[in-house]
Design a protein around this nucleic acid. Structure first.
Length: 270
DNA sequence: ATTCTATGTCGAA
DNA sequence: TCGACCTAGAATA
């Protein structure tokens, strides 16, 4: 479930579990074997997320491990060591606990300049205290690209994925195909503040929950739903189902190769 | 047994 | 805009 909150949560978990400890590093699957061996036995001294990218550093190893989970990668930490390898484990870290990386789009060692270059290509990340929303605004307010596409562009904003994109547009009543230049500065600031709240909540809970209390099914006199993607949402993957606010069927279209979900009635603003 | 799908990104056409 | 790629579980046959 990799949007930015997943990576920040993972960085926190890696620090808590391993910082200051010498780790065993291996690549059971083999595709990260030479790199894993360079790390083996070194003390993990940092883990940090920038958008959907994770960087892990080790004492006396100049390079950092750079991980991107892609669409379906996972990095799962379990108690204990010497656990049986299940499936394709690209990278395994062990020190009291075992962290198994599977299905990652990217797992590589980068030199410090390469790390800096990778981070420099990312827009501001709502989960980072040093993020500047005006950097994103600068790109948005001069663009003819739909705001729904701009939100997904990692050079505009770091860490927002398909769920947060759909949900922040709904919560701010913004029509997804509105050109960036038609979005007001005030509305952008509200969307940014909303992303900060939603994504921080996501880091805390490990889920994406965006439904306000007054729209919870119980509050609306309906039975609770069980979304299968780890959270309660207004529109994401709810095509054809009734909007939780107005009851109109939620719509779907493909935009830039990704499914976009929205309520045509509630989302009317630019 | 095979196909499909997924909260992502890149590069070729 | 499209296919390729990383993997596993669900859906379909």
């Amino acid at each position: 479930m990799p949007e930015g909150h997943t990576l920040h949560r993972l960085a926190d978990e890696l620090r808590t579990t391993y910082v200051g400890r010498a780790v065993t590093s291996s690549s059971p699957q083999g595709r990260f074997a030479a790199e894993a061996a360079r790390i083996d036995g070194h003390v993990l001294d940092g883990a940090e997320a920038w958008g959907k990218h994770l960087f892990v550093s080790f004492a006396d190893v100049p390079e950092q491990a750079h991980v991107h989970l892609g669409l379906y990668g996972t990095f799962v930490i379990s108690p204990g060591v010497d656990r049986p390898v299940v499936g394709q484990v690209r990278w395994r870290l062990e020190a009291g606990s075992t962290a198994d990386l599977r299905g990652a789009n990217t797992c590589e060692l980068l030199t410090p300049p390469e790390v800096d270059a990778r981070i420099a290509r990312l827009g501001p990340d709502p989960l980072r205290a040093d993020a500047d929303p005006d950097r994103a605004w600068h790109r948005i307010h001069r663009s003819t690209t739909p705001i729904a596409a701009l939100l997904m562009d990692q050079a505009v904003l770091g860490g927002v994925g398909n769920v947060y994109r759909a949900e922040v547009l709904f919560r701010n009543e913004v029509a997804p195909m509105t050109a960036g230049r038609r979005v007001t500065h005030k509305r952008w600031n509200a969307m940014w503040a909303d992303l900060v709240d939603l994504m921080r909540d996501g880091v805390r809970t490990g889920r994406i929950d965006t439904v306000r209390p007054e729209h919870e099914p119980e509050a609306m006199g309906r039975p609770p739903r069980a979304d299968d993607h780890g959270g309660e949402v207004y529109v994401y993957r709810r095509e054809g189902q009734a909007c939780l606010v107005c009851g109109m069927p939620v719509r779907r279209r493909v935009l830039a190769g990704r499914n976009l979900f929205w309520c045509p009635t509630c989302q009317h603003r630019g």
